[in-house]
Design a binder for these strands. Structure first.
Length: 274
DNA sequence: AATGAAACCTGACAGC
DNA sequence: TGCTGTCAGGTTTCAT
């Protein structure tokens, strides 16, 4: 479900809501599918630790955990969460009904709960020892125009597929790839390596602008994204092409087209995007 | 090495 | 009402 702006919004909400809180106990659902580390590893690492900070790296939530005093001189640990397509990480009161497809619950010393809910089970949880989680690629919000250009040099694949490749940029998904390409005036099918420097500069700027605008509006709620407090975002109201197939382009009135690229539904304006 | 298709899951919705 | 088919914010794996 969530791309960079949604994960950023969730991370900010979680940081505000649970920073400094202590995880008293952890419950994990009976099936191991949504876990990347073993249930034992996760429960063992989380139980009794204080949450120092929650932040976003790419599309991952990173919980920085304070070292446990009982453990002899081991460094800090991290809890890494990927929400997949439909994952939610919610701060809730134990009185609230446990939603269907809840796979993990961390009970906090403050009396609240951290709940991981994920109907499609594409989400992944893991714990790790080091405090240097970097994610697979480069952050789109801080990359320079030069670095950005370098990423796509001599790539034969489409620019759309390249934007979705997390080993290059991490954090851009299907919505923001389509929206950025529209704003930059570039057709999704264009070969990444054949874009001009001017086009790449425009795309670089468009991505930053779209992501920042989306963060400001709390992300895009297309079907079921909500933030850590369970509230929807508003950027879906600003979508210009994504899921607007057949509707008039907001700039030129041409009908928005939908194709499949890299296995993903791809939306663009045939007139505005060259 | 890199590209694309299929697989992994459940749910919502359209059409019959 | 209920069946079938399609689609969905993502990533990994497997075949070319």
């Amino acid at each position: 479900m969530p791309e960079l702006p949604e994960v950023e919004t969730i991370a900010r909400g979680l940081d505000k809501g649970v920073r400094g809180d202590v995880i008293d106990s952890v419950w994990l659902g009976s099936y191991p599918e949504p876990l990347k580390s073993s249930a034992q590893q996760i429960a063992g690492t989380l139980t009794g630790t204080r949450i120092a900070r929650v932040r976003r790296v790419g599309k991952h939530l990173v919980f920085d955990l304070e070292p446990k005093r009982s453990r002899n001189g081991r460094g800090s640990r991290q809890w890494i969460v990927h929400l997949g397509m439909t994952g939610r990480m919610l701060v809730a009161s134990p009185d609230e009904e446990l939603p269907k497809h809840t796979h993990a619950v961390a009970s906090l010393a403050s009396g609240r709960e951290l709940r991981f809910v994920d109907p499609r089970r594409f989400g992944r949880l893991s714990v790790r020892a080091a405090a240097d989680f970097a994610g697979p690629g480069t952050e789109p919000l801080t990359i320079t125009a030069e670095q950005f250009t370098e990423l796509f040099r001599s790539r034969k694949t489409s620019i759309k597929a390249a934007l979705l490749n997390q080993k290059l940029l991490h954090g851009v998904g299907n919505i923001y790839a389509d929206e950025s390409l529209f704003r930059a005036g570039i057709r999704p099918r264009r070969a990444a390596g054949r874009l001009t420097r001017a086009e790449l500069d425009a795309l670089h700027a468009a991505i930053k602008q779209v992501l920042n605008d989306a963060i400001r509006l709390g992300g895009s709620s297309v079907s079921d994204y909500v933030n850590a407090e369970g509230r929807e975002g508003f950027f879906q109201l600003r979508h210009r092409v994504y899921m607007r197939t057949g509707q008039p382009c907001l700039v030129c009135r041409t009908r928005i087209k939908r194709i499949v690229l890299g296995g993903r539904g791809t939306h663009y304006c045939p007139k505005c995007q060259k």
